[in-house]
Nucleic acid binder design. Sequence first.
DNA 1: GCTTCCAGTGGGAGCGCTCCCAGAATCTTC
DNA 2: GAAGATTCTGGGAGCGCTCCCACTGGAAGC
Lengths: 337, 337
Amino acid sequence: MAKDVARRRSTLDEVAELAGVSRSVASRALNNAPYVSSAKREAVERAARRLGYVPDTTARALATRRTGVAALVVSGEDPSIFADPFFAQVIVGASGALEEADLHLMLCLAASGRGRRRVGELLGSGGADGVMLMALREDDPLIHMAGETAMPVVFGGRPIGPAPRWYVDADNVGGAREATEYLISRGRRRVATVCGRLDTGVGRARYRGYRDAMLAAGLAPLPPREGDFTESSGTAATAALLTDHPEVDGVFAANDNMGAGALRALRAAGRTVPGDVAVVGFDDLTVARIADPPLTTVQQPIQALGRKMARMLVALVNGQDPTPLILPTRLIVRASA
Amino acid sequence: MAKDVARRRSTLDEVAELAGVSRSVASRALNNAPYVSSAKREAVERAARRLGYVPDTTARALATRRTGVAALVVSGEDPSIFADPFFAQVIVGASGALEEADLHLMLCLAASGRGRRRVGELLGSGGADGVMLMALREDDPLIHMAGETAMPVVFGGRPIGPAPRWYVDADNVGGAREATEYLISRGRRRVATVCGRLDTGVGRARYRGYRDAMLAAGLAPLPPREGDFTESSGTAATAALLTDHPEVDGVFAANDNMGAGALRALRAAGRTVPGDVAVVGFDDLTVARIADPPLTTVQQPIQALGRKMARMLVALVNGQDPTPLILPTRLIVRASA
DNA sequence: GCTTCCAGTGGGAGCGCTCCCAGAATCTTC
DNA sequence: GAAGATTCTGGGAGCGCTCCCACTGGAAGC
């Protein structure tokens, strides 16, 4: 048998009976509500302790119409995008903020059609009090579903198209611009970008930042080389770049993984970094520090992103109307540029 | 206001009324239960579709005493241990398996006292159908709490002390032994280990594997240098090791992060890898591939670990009594040894 | 003394679902 | 064609909690 002693959990009624009060009084006592004499309050607390009483989450949720759960949905074609350490940081931030509000975190990796259907059900079934949505692709069906639901939804990163009502995003355009400007300020003139998928909000924003900076400096942007934010795609894109544009002397990679990939491709092609080609990444994840040479990169406050999303969601759940947030980025100069 | 149109969700009663049947029939129809005429079944389905009916998770949970939620608890002193990409892989695996069983994943990062208290409440409150627990430290209070609860608990990795009834673990002893044997087989004689914390099950198991292999080869194990599974701790431990035992010609690091740290320390000390010192890591995470030189390492099937844990928990929730599992590891030879 | 007030109390009606069960309708089977 | 088996049906009692509300009794105010 699975359980040896299926010790039945005690109920509020039992606590009330043991304390010699009504269920109402017991409920009030345990919820620190007013209108309970201190004698009875104490009796209830004692009884609850003796019985090891823990209120039933589900019953409470049904009565209050509050589940105490916030969902974080990470949507993508492929569950492996979740392996990006970026998400772990988001989760650490969100988890901390939710803990403060006494909410639990439900994590939905919506890769398959089935996963997405389940998120749809979640949205309709009241299984959570609200949702933080990180959907990358512009054609992600969840973006539309989020618009339909009555449940509060906070976006992590703006999708392409009209900005959602509530979101937290990093200043991707500004960060990418700063990275590119930095390359230019170091005398680089043939600066290329290994950008992220251009059907994602981030990918497009970071490409725009690159483009803006190039144009502002009177330089011709090179056509974007698209990767999918993985290291190997960065290697491939950079290798292709070097074939078509051997004169390149600077690369802005739209994230650190691809930056690390670029370093690999450059090394394979016999280029020195930063001698021949300077490289800047984006994110400031561990990989940037341990890359060889360490990667100059644009730091975005990832934990803060998660934290702010969670706080925004909490505000929404409490009936407030918070304003969207764009978090600043910051250039971290290391050896690669 | 947070919600413009708080479109009230429709209930089963409304569906039943629209379909012209009783609530019981509607319930049976929507749950594909028998004893519903096909005419009424169809009417109910039509009505549900028209109303956009989605069953209320909470109410169902209260009635069935099943929440449809499985919790993954990651316990540690410090939320940043969660940043280890190891956990992301576990989650990907677990999430997939839970999806098959139509369960949702609740993620609890229990670092603070408050976090642990909340896990305790979860365990007692019926907020989940079961728990997957990854607790590293031997004195972790959650290990004890897990023994108290009536809720099914599957351990990820065996804690120190008596093995829990249900767990999934990697063959840490065997993997560490193989790694060490490999170093010895390559002619290394002064092999040291940068081990993980010895108050953790993994740390101790991997140290034991190292020790067993050394003794079996008639070599004297060096005293363990303890790290905390982070790269910087690997660097520090290795640096100290080189001071006390400059003659070292092989290092088995208890995970890849510390292996990468060891590489850094060795480079800083002017040793070549694998020329002067050969290094082997454990886990086979990305960092092992991108390290310089790429790290020879013991691969453990991390996604499978998560998947098996989830499947085991599902079995428990369904009243079965699965048997504990130890997953095999495999040496991946790269340039560092 | 009489109202007025209010802290304190417990009864009871939900929240939206499942599931048991009694009874009606239909189908067997000799 | 009666007796029994079988399929359907809907009423109603929960699941364990919150919260509204009607009520008590003692203090306060005149």
